[in-house]
Design a protein around this nucleic acid. Structure first.
Length: 638
DNA sequence: CTAGGGTTAG
């Protein structure tokens, strides 16, 4: 009777009441204990759930088959591995080792604590597997990054004629989403309709996430718009789907929609929206996000703070990233790595290396991503020797280098002009060289004008990545640098045969908090006349200062006059001119462009920074350039 | 009275 009363207390305010009733009893029985434990669990108060369970044990009340699932769920939610292991022991001691509810709980618990092998052992020992057991192990494998194994188990389950319910389908969808198998995802969608489950809101959320992640954002959006009662997870699925597929603006817009509709964002919403801001590269937007975070309850959330560090680095202010970093109390390897990668992007290798030592000092173990940050840092600032040593240090620490690490090393050797060594390095790697490795060799060949190696790398690239215009442009630039004009023309023919056009560059500049976009030769801006007057004046000043345009960065073999005209029409030059006429003297100009910096613009921007006494920060397709007083942070290698 | 799922960072 009293148990029923406690059970009835199901909203937050009533927890206190339930507790009061409970405390009235001198010796509560197991039913009453279960009721109070369940009460806390239902409200997500998992720490309190475990605290009550401990009290129950101290009171010498034996838990029953209903107690354990609740307690295990709390352990899962808190990822309390040690506590859960103790509970596992108690399960055996009290004779519930073969209760299917308890065992399902154990499977889920081990999976959530990244102990997938333990989960599998418990699962294998189950004699009566229910759909819940199967779902627990399947989702366990996806949660631990093994979607293929999850799908294998699913097909086993089908062979045993176990019919999936909607929660099982949610897990399967997640597995197909992870491997980005749109076709299989669609076939699950078909099953959902056939089974008449297409009214299950949570299953529709999974479908939305699947379509969004697999790049079908329009389909996902139609699901999103159809949902009668959108919850925060649906919003998150849509926002992160946009962000993951390069629709950063849509992601940010949706986040602002959420804010204006007073829908409460959670840590996931914030992380995804911050990721989108990082892609847009607007420092103003970035500051807005941090402002929002600092007024929310997630200001100390590890995920959110890590995303902020990454965002600030990618929006050009690695110093603001550092402020967030310094404020964090518990820094895990991901946080340290994010900061190190940030310094790497900006070519501040010494700070990256200092952080690396500091992190080891406090006992945080570096992982493969930490080394990607360190190696790119060394690349971006020319610390060839340090980079080489770090690569070996990584292997000595037992971290297996991945494709990206090898690409960094090729870049390092290339930068140092050791092209032969770079090539031998590629040939001796234990893995098959892919796009970024050949790409690194090609750009090194271009810089050091090594035609033969460049041609070889380009050939591999045309095979591996035939529709990427960038490779053709690089090869053409290599020929131009070597003054092989007829070869330049041949590349142009090759491109025409494949129906490829040179990617048009565009640059964004943020002025007074507003992002303005400029294309190549863009005259569409309302202040276009002033911009081009400023451009002309800049050209004059450059010439007076002795600047000679680098013709080699033009793809086409044009005549002299056209060449120069074409060069100073590059989008970043227009953006710079606009920035100069619309900001106060001395203001730093921040520009984002979609392609790599071209040789000519890079040289011109260096000189412009000196002539107009401005710092100019340019984010290109893969790194930052800080132009100041006539030189650039990249040391002219990119 | 109990169990499984979906959205997140480098």
């Amino acid at each position: 009777m009293v148990t029923k009363l406690v059970n009835a207390c199901s909203n937050i305010g009533d927890i206190c009441y339930a507790r009061k009733i409970f405390e009235e009893f001198f010796e509560p029985d197991v039913f009453l204990w279960n009721a109070i434990v369940r009460c806390y669990s239902r409200h997500g108060l998992f720490a309190a759930t475990l605290a009550m369970y401990s009290r129950m044990q101290r009171a010498w009340v034996s838990p029953d088959s209903f107690t354990f699932p609740i307690v295990l769920k709390a352990c899962s939610a808190l990822a309390a591995l040690e506590m859960g292991k103790r509970v596992h022991g108690q399960v055996f001691r009290h004779g519930f080792g073969s209760d299917v509810f308890v065992q399902n709980g154990l499977v889920a618990f081990y999976a959530k604590c990244s102990q997938i092998r333990h989960a599998r052992i418990v699962f294998n020992g189950l004699c009566d597997k229910t759909i819940v057991s199967w779902t627990a192990i399947i989702s366990g494998y996806t949660q631990n990054g093994h979607p293929i194994e999850a799908l294998r188990i699913f097909s086993q389950m089908r062979k045993m004629n176990v019919k999936p319910d909607w929660i099982a389908l949610v897990s399967i969808l997640r597995a197909y989403t992870d491997i980005e198998d749109l076709e299989q995802g669609k076939s699950v969608h078909g099953c959902v309709i056939k089974m008449g489950l297409d009214l299950e809101p949570d299953l529709l959320i999974s479908l939305t996430a699947m379509y969004a992640k697999c790049g079908q954002v329009a389909v996902a959006r139609s699901f999103f718009d159809m949902m009668k009662v959108p919850n925060v997870i649906l919003w998150n699925a849509m926002i992160s789907g946009y962000a993951k597929n390069g629709y950063a603006e849509e992601a940010v817009d949706l986040f602002h929609d959420m804010v204006s509709k007073n829908i409460k964002a959670d840590a996931v919403t914030l992380s995804s929206s911050i990721l989108a801001c990082a892609q847009l590269g607007s420092l103003k937007l970035a500051r807005g996000m941090e402002d929002y975070v600092s007024r929310s309850e997630y200001r100390d959330d590890v995920f959110v703070s890590t995303a902020l560090i990454d965002m600030y680095a990618k929006c050009g202010s690695v110093d603001s990233a550092r402020v967030v970093f310094d404020r964090m109390l518990d820094k895990d390897v991901v946080v340290w790595s994010a900061m190190i990668v940030g310094y790497g992007l900006h070519g501040r290798a010494q700070e990256a290396i200092d952080l690396f030592h500091a992190m080891k000092q406090v006992g945080v173990c570096p992982n493969d991503v930490t080394f990607i940050g360190l190696l790119t840092a060394c690349n971006h600032s020319g610390l060839v020797e340090d980079g080489w040593q770090l690569f070996h240090c990584m292997r000595d620490s037992g971290i297996e280098p991945r494709h990206q690490h090898y690409a960094c090393v090729v870049d390092l050797l290339g930068r140092a002009g050791c092209l032969g060594q770079a090539f031998r390095f590629i040939m001796n790697m234990p893995i098959e060289p892919g796009i970024s490795i050949w790409g690194a060799l090609l750009s090194a060949s271009k810089i050091h004008r090594h035609v033969a190696l460049g041609e070889y790398a380009a050939e591999r690239l045309f095979f591996l990545d035939p529709y990427n215009t960038g490779h053709y442009v690089q090869l053409s630039n290599l020929y131009a640098a070597a003054r092989m004009w007829d070869q330049v023309a041949k590349v142009r023919v090759l491109m025409r045969e494949k129906g490829l056009n040179k990617d048009l560059g565009h640059s964004l500049i943020e002025v007074n908090g507003k992002l303005e976009a400029f294309r190549f030769g863009d005259k569409s801006h309302p202040r276009s006349k002033e911009i081009f007057e400023e451009l002309e004046q800049l050209e004059r000043r450059l010439k007076d200062a002795g600047f000679v345009p680098h013709r080699e960065s033009v793809l086409h073999d044009l005549n002299e006059e056209e060449t120069e005209e074409t060069l100073c029409n590059h989008s970043e030059r227009i953006a710079i001119a606009y920035g100069l006429i619309s900001t106060a003297p001395g203001t730093t100009l921040r520009i984002n462009k979609n392609l790599r910096a071209c040789v000519n613009c890079h040289a011109a921007t260096k000189l412009i920074s000196k002539l107009v006494k401005r710092e100019i920060v340019v984010r290109d397709a893969n790194r930052f350039h800080h132009f100041k007083d006539g030189s650039c942070s990249c040391g002219d290698y990119w």
